[in-house]
Structures are given as structure tokens and as C-alpha cells.
Design a protein around this nucleic acid. Structure first.
Lengths: 241, 241
DNA sequence: CGCCATATTGATCGGGGTCAACGGCTGTGG
DNA sequence: CCACAGCCGTTGACCCCGATCAATATGGCG
């Protein structure tokens, strides 16, 4: 539990030991949620924020036609709805893809934390800005990249993010329990076409992706295929202020 | 000058008079920039942030093929690169569409402001979260809405945002100096197709859009055509904390 | 063992891209 | 004052990527 939190805090910025302890202490109860349930629902006004400890979730909107757009994938370590602390009404839902374990942070505690420790407020702000950077990259993908590039790109992104929180397996494979339909809803593609592109990526020896396991055989080849450059994820660099 | 800042501060959240004055005082020099120039460039590390006082600008990325994705339109009152204060390296550029007047806020002053007045930090955070909400809505548009819906949607969004900062004209028209090519780059469409859809919207008596002037003849009709619901812009409601 | 979600493949279709040409407006320089 | 250039808007013709429809595996799980 605290291992994930610690890893994520290290990614978010330079916090002192006291600040890190304060964040851990603020975590309220832990909730277990089944697969394909909502963590939060569009239109509601939550009073606490969810930090994902285990499992996969996604942000999504349902449009008027009934189609779904997945807006982001959320993995362990993601403070997936921290924006509900600042904005009053959610404009989208967050649903689990797999069973999840989440830690709940009541808004009043977050308020205390951020006012007592500006560095924590800054770290949380930073997390939401990285989310925004990912949105921008997805916009570029959905708007201007081909289906082949989009899928290669998102797989690169997921592997990079999973590695950053220590979720790569020893053999270099990843657990990526995302169905082809979900990939399609994330990338603006149909399930059928996702399937065809995955087949092509497999035939080109770039990846193996089945049964929720992703193996990238050729990292550079996949990055080239997806026009992927990880700088937007802001993982390596830290800003000392 | 300060009129725009005041309007925008009022939208961002409940700030005291002292806090508002502090923000105004923090504005450094004012810069005038010609059309089609960069305010900030991808990959750089700015040391000050731009608040747009007049004119239109846009965030964009140039992809490997040389195509452009416009990520957002920025109008008067937008703190268009506040994220450069928190994240070290820009993942995209911001360019002007028209001549612009911008006020510059040095990062150290922003740091002082946000640490002395938590409400200001919160207001800036709020601004970046609203940006993110717009990104999410655009993702849904580009990913799952038809060209016709996308264009209607973005025109509704622009008119709502312009009205919110007092840029609607008395006759209800708007200055929207965005070319069809730029609309296409924002929505993931070709210039040709943007043109055809605009013709259809004109024939349907929903809008007139020429010479940089947008007139919406049927607000509800356009909103229906674009599946537009303005809640994500967070304009009306304010959160009292 | 049977059910339901997911993956896979083929056949066909269509929204929107691409290419090309032309018109209109504006600014600029001779 | 006119000629020309360049950008933007407009329209037609054609094409292709990816959607849709449909049928068939496959496989986990009660």
C-alpha cells in the first residue's frame, strides 16, 4: 500500500519526509471495488478523492448517441479524481476496468494538507497538469495520427507509466487488462479495427498482447511506429524550486 | 487591461479585494506580439507566464508528418501557459492567431503570490483544471462526434467563453478570427470538409461565419446539433470553500 | 457443460481525406 | 491606379481508412 504511495510521491516532486508522512496519514479508509463499477459518477459532487492502490480504471464520458469516449487510463498511484477537490461538479465518470483497491482522502484533509504544506499542493497541482499533458497528447493522436500510430503510441505510454510505478514484470512484460473494445473507445476506433491493427503489430514482431498481458518485443520499433516521445509524461526530470 | 483581469478573476473563484489587487500588481510588463508568432515554444523552459489581454492564440503540437494539432484556443483573460510555472518543460507551443497584447507574470512573483495567498494558488489551479475539462470535451468530440457535431460544438464553446469574458457584441455576434484551416487542425478535419460543414450550418440557418465574425442565429439549434452542454466550462457555478 | 464476454475474420459501405481548380479579397509595390 | 501575389474560401471529382454488419472462434467461469 504505502509502497505505491511512496513511489508516486517520489515521481510528483521533492517532498520532505515530514510531508510524505503527512500524505500517508491523510489516507482514510481503503475501499475495494469490483470490476466495471463506477468510482465516481458524472454530475456528482464528491467529498473525498480516490487514490488507486491496485487495479485499472478509466475516465470516460457517454455521449448523446450512447457511444463512449474513454479519456484516460488510471493505474496504481493515480490520484484519479483530485480535480473534484477544486471543481465542484464532475464532468465525467471514472469506472474500474478490473477490481480495484483505492484509498480515500476526504476533501477537508486535503485542504489542511495543502495549506500547511505548499509543496503538497504543488505536487497535487503537478499531477493534474501531467494528466492534462496526457490529454493533449491523446488529442494529437486521435486528431492527427493513424489508427496504427495511435495504438502503438498508447501502448508505449502505458508501458512507460507502468514501469514508472514499478509495475513492469521481471521479464519486461506488463499486465494490461484492457479489452480491445476499451482501447477502441479510448482512441476513437472501432473494436474491429483495433483488432486488425493489433494483428499487424503482432505480425511485425513489435508486440504480443493477449489475455491482459502486453509484451513489447521491440521498444524502439514500437515507439517509432507510434511517433512516441515520453517527455510529456514528465517522468524523469524533477523541478527543484 | 485590468477590466479583463477583473472579469477573469471573478470567474476563477472567490478572491478578496486584497488578493485581486495582489494579482494585478504582479503583472509585469505588457508585450505586444504580431499575428502568427509564438508566445512560447515547445521544449523551452519559460521563466514567466503570459496572460492574454487582447487577441486570439492557440496551443498546438506539430507531429512527425508535419501535420498540426491545435489543442486549444486561447482568448482574452486566459493565463495561457500557467502550467510552465509547475512543469519544467513545455510539451507544446502557443502561437498567436491575431496580434495579441499579453501581460507577463514572472514565476518568482507567482510563487510569492501563491504562498502568501492560498486562494490565489487555488484559483490558478482551478484555471488549469478547467483547461483540462476542455481538453476532455475536445477528446470526446474528436474521438466520437461527427464533423458536423464537432464544428457546432466548438462554435458553441467559443461563444460561451467569449460571452463569459464580455466579448460578445451588442448584436450578439462574436469576433472569431479563426480560419477554416485552423478549425480543421483543432478538430482533426481537413480544411475542405470544414468548409462543407460550415456551408451546411449556414444553409440550416444556424450560423453565419465569415470575415472573422460569428453570428449564431439559433443558439439552441446549434447546441443540439453539437451535443453541447456547457457544464464542463464551469462558468456559472462557484465553489465556496 | 453451457453461457457470455472477448477476440477474430470477411464483406461491404461511407464519412471525410486528397487533389485540383477557381474566385474573392487585401495588401503591396511599380 | 493598376497589376500581381498570396491567403483564404469554395466547389467538384475521386478515393481510402476505418466503420459497420455479420458470422465464427475462444475461453473463463458459474
Amino acid at each position: 500500500v504505502s509502497l505505491i504511495i511512496q513511489r508516486k510521491l517520489a515521481l510528483l516532486g521533492p517532498l520532505s519526509d515530514e510531508e510524505k508522512r503527512a500524505v500517508e496519514t491523510a489516507a482514510g479508509r481503503v475501499r475495494r471495488v469490483g470490476p466495471h463499477e463506477n468510482l465516481v459518477r458524472e454530475g456528482t459532487r464528491p467529498t473525498e478523492c480516490n487514490l488507486i492502490l491496485e487495479g485499472f480504471a478509466c475516465r470516460y464520458k457517454i455521449l448523446s448517441k450512447g457511444t463512449r469516449q474513454i479519456l484516460s487510463f488510471q493505474i496504481a498511484g493515480d490520484f484519479c479524481d483530485i480535480q473534484s477537490y477544486v471543481l465542484q461538479r464532475l464532468d465525467h465518470s471514472i469506472g474500474t476496468l478490473t477490481p480495484c483497491k483505492v484509498a480515500l482522502f476526504p476533501h477537508p484533509l486535503i485542504k489542511e494538507l495543502t495549506e500547511r504544506y505548499p509543496a503538497i499542493g504543488r505536487a497535487l497541482w503537478r499531477e493534474t497538469l501531467i494528466d492534462a499533458a496526457i490529454y493533449r497528447e491523446w488529442m494529437a493522436s486521435i486528431g492527427r495520427r493513424s489508427a496504427y500510430q495511435r495504438i502503438a503510441h498508447v501502448l508505449c505510454e502505458l508501458s512507460t507509466r507502468l514501469r514508472a510505478v514499478g509495475l513492469a514484470r521481471d521479464d519486461g512484460s506488463f499486465r494490461v487488462p484492457i479489452t480491445q473494445a476499451e482501447l477502441g473507445d479510448a482512441l476513437g476506433l472501432s473494436t474491429v479495427h483495433v483488432n486488425r491493427v493489433l494483428r499487424r503489430l503482432r505480425l511485425e514482431q513489435l508486440i504480443t498482447f493477449s489475455a491482459g498481458t502486453l509484451i513489447i518485443h521491440d521498444t524502439e520499433g514500437l515507439a517509432a511506429a507510434g511517433d512516441f516521445d515520453p517527455v510529456y509524461l514528465q517522468i524523469t526530470e524533477q523541478r527543484a524550486h
